[in-house]
């Protein structure tokens, strides 16, 4: 089993994130077919209804679309959409948190920029 399932968060959100990751990383290019909910269920050992909920979340956001009787496919422009969404999340989850923590430790904005530089060099 993939180390995906974190029991403290809704699983369907995690499934949606998984699919998004795959879209960003190119594993699921546009117009590619997404695994069926049953395949998700079998692979991640989760309830198929939960998997369906995750997939439907992305359908609602226009990232996936349904071809009747065939399955789910990645929509055109899905990658850009997902990346935009992730950037927002990145800002909320990492940048804001980072600035708050920096404040706590008395790190100035300049020092913070410095640190980001150093981090980039270390890569």
């Amino acid at each position: 089993m993939k180390n995906l399932i974190d029991d403290g968060r809704p699983i369907f959100v995690q499934i949606a994130e998984r699919i998004e990751d795959d879209i960003i990383e190119g594993g699921l290019p546009e117009e590619a077919q997404v695994p069926s909910t049953n395949q998700f269920a079998a692979f991640y050992k989760i309830n198929p209804a939960t998997a369906a909920k995750g997939v439907n979340l992305l359908v609602d956001e226009g990232i996936l679309y349904k071809k009747r009787g065939i399955g789910m496919f990645v929509a055109g422009g899905a990658r850009t959409k997902v990346i935009e969404k992730r950037k927002e999340q990145f800002f909320d989850e990492y940048v804001v948190t980072m600035i708050r923590e920096a404040e706590k430790l008395g790190i100035t904005a300049d020092q913070l920029m410095d640190m980001i530089q150093r981090g980039d060099n270390k890569r």
Binding site: G8, R9, P10, I11, F12, K45, N47, A49, K53
Partner: peptide
């Protein structure tokens, strides 16, 4: 519970002969 929780779609919790939770598993997780 940890072993099966991802398989469940809906959760019922009993305590002292009473049903204290009757909820969708995903709602409960969050």
């Amino acid at each position: 519970i940890d072993e099966v929780s991802s398989l469940l779609e809906h959760i019922l919790v009993m305590d002292n002969g009473k049903l204290i939770i009757d909820q969708d598993a995903e709602e409960l997780r969050g």
